[in-house]
Computed example of a mutant assay.
Amino acid sequence: MNLKEKLITRKSGPAKTARMVETIVGCKWSLTVYQLLEDEINRPGEMVKSVEGLTTKVLNQCLKRNIEFGILEKISYPEIPPRVEYKVTNFGQKFMRILRDLESLQLEIDN
């Protein structure tokens, strides 16, 4: 082997994933929304009523970002009045597992 074959190129972090984590963790409501969904509170009106300080506008922004990243899915039912629910995607389940691992790591650091 020559010297060029032994050189390792600089590794950089996954840009899209880093942006996603930064955006989601940077939003103070995303983790709360995930907890609501785990508690089977999946309709926007229920979410706003369940969390003090959460407004419809902020919730909609948070839900939209999570949908764009593929973490959540919006389900619209053709009913009158219209009914909308949110659920965690398969990708979202994996992502939330990573967030739980980060939370566990933080607890270890804190103790």
Results as ranks from 00 to 15, higher is better:
G92A: 09
K74M: 08
T23I: 01
P44V: 11
W29T: 08
S12N: 04
E85T: 03
M1G: 12
M20P: 01
L54W: 03
E103T: 09
N42C: 14
K28Y: 02
L31T: 09
E85I: 09
N66D: 13
L99K: 00
L105M: 10
N42M: 08
P81H: 15
L3K: 13
D101M: 07
Q35D: 11
Q106H: 04
K11H: 05
Y34C: 06
P82E: 06
Y86D: 02
P81I: 14
D110W: 04
R97A: 12
L3H: 04
G13M: 10
F69Q: 00
V25A: 02
G13A: 12
L107I: 09
L54A: 03
L3W: 04
Q35I: 11
F69I: 05
R100F: 08
D110M: 14
G70C: 06
K4Q: 14
E38P: 09
P78E: 08
R43N: 10
E22L: 04
G45Y: 02
R10V: 07
E38L: 07
A15Q: 04
R100P: 00
F69E: 05
R97W: 05
P14S: 13
P82I: 05
K94S: 14
R10K: 13
N90E: 15
L72R: 07
V88T: 05
S30I: 06
E52I: 00
T9N: 13
K57M: 10
A15H: 10
L102E: 06
N66L: 15
F95N: 09
A18V: 07
N66T: 11
V88L: 07
Y77E: 14
I98S: 06
T55N: 00
P82V: 02
A18I: 12
E38H: 10
E79P: 03
R19K: 14
T9S: 06
E22K: 13
T23F: 02
K6L: 13
S104W: 01
K6M: 08
P81V: 07
D110K: 13
G53Y: 00
T23W: 02
G45T: 02
Q35K: 13
R97P: 00
Q61K: 12
I41A: 10
E46P: 02
E46C: 03
T17K: 08
K6H: 00
D110L: 13
P44E: 02
V25C: 09
S104C: 04
Q35W: 06
Y86F: 12
Q93Y: 11
N60Y: 05
A18F: 15
N111C: 11
I75M: 01
L37H: 15
L102N: 14
Y86I: 00
K28V: 15
G13Q: 12
L72Y: 08
T32P: 01
M47L: 00
E68P: 01
Q35A: 11
G92N: 06
R83S: 05
K49R: 12
P81R: 15
Y34H: 10
P44Q: 11
T89Q: 09
Q93C: 11
P81W: 11
G26S: 11
C27S: 13
G92Q: 09
N111S: 15
L72W: 12
